[in-house]
């Protein structure tokens, strides 16, 4: 019983931080990460809000490292760069 409580309440704490982060992120942080998010609607930001709650840690990490959105690699793109 005690293990289940520890797991569930830790997840709640993680998600509670996520809600606070997500509120800040969809209003301010999002445009620092992705230029295509500049000037986007409330509807778009509302959708992103829910994903920013569980993934706040990753987003915060990318923001702190100053990373921008990458282009996905594949065999052709890698060989073309050589």
């Amino acid at each position: 019983m005690i293990w289940a409580e520890i797991i569930v309440y830790s997840v709640f704490v993680y998600l509670a931080i996520g809600v606070l982060f997500a509120l800040w992120f969809v209003v301010f942080g999002i445009t620092k990460l992705d230029d295509s998010a500049k000037g986007t609607s409330i509807g778009f930001r509302f959708l992103i809000f829910f994903g920013a709650i569980p993934f706040w840690f990753l987003l915060a990490k990318r923001l702190l490292k100053g990373e921008k959105r990458p282009t996905e690699q594949n065999a052709h793109r890698r060989r073309a760069e050589k």
């Binding site: 990460l33 992705d34 295509s36 998010a37 778009f44 959708l47 992103i48 994903g51 987003l59 990318r62």
Partner: peptide, 8 residues
Amino acid sequence: HDFWLNNL
């Protein structure tokens, strides 16, 4: 949403 494919 596509935003996540790009930024995750």
